[in-house]
């Protein structure tokens, strides 16, 4: 199990003995808001201060596809199926394919706080709050 922390990155926990069996040095000071896996067993990690990271085996890379993506506060992150990733940041809702992020919903004075993807009918529900 992976756990994300405030200002302390991620830890991998062995549920048998609850020991820490992994972490990533590069993001050890970040606040990790969401974690998900892709079909290739890579780990997508969103942070509240430094955008989105991708971990695979021992390598780690950061998603930097334009100013609206790079280094942003990312609230959530979901596997969108068909090898895509869906996430939201203060500028809107994005879909990532092949490391290319495409904005699919403009934030428009709203903060998209939550995403729910239905597995049955392939719909996306977004929830949020107005910028006041």
């Amino acid at each position: 199990m992976w756990l994300g922390f405030v200002n302390k990155g991620v830890l991998k926990i062995n549920l048998s003995d609850l020991s820490t069996v992994g972490y990533f040095e590069k993001i050890k000071h970040e606040s990790v808001s969401f974690i998900t896996k892709d079909t290739e067993n890579g780990l997508w990690i969103s942070t509240l201060n430094k955008g989105i990271y991708y971990l695979k085996r021992t390598s780690i890379s950061v998603l930097e596809d334009g100013a609206e993506v790079k280094g942003q506060q990312v609230f959530n992150l979901f596997n969108g199926g068909n090898k895509s990733l869906i996430f939201s940041n203060p500028t809107g809702l994005f879909q990532v394919n092949n490391s290319h992020a495409k904005k699919i919903v403009e934030a428009q004075a709203r903060i998209i706080r939550d995403i729910k993807i239905s597995e049955t009918d392939n719909t996306v529900l977004i929830g949020g709050s107005l910028l006041l």
């Binding site: 756990l3 922390f5 405030v6 302390k8 609850l18 990790v32 808001s33 969401f34």
Partner: peptide, 13 residues
């Protein structure tokens, strides 16, 4: 309670 950490947990997978 399985384990207490020294900082807040905010996500898991």
């Amino acid at each position: 309670l399985l384990r207490e950490f020294d900082t807040f947990i905010i996500s898991m997978f």
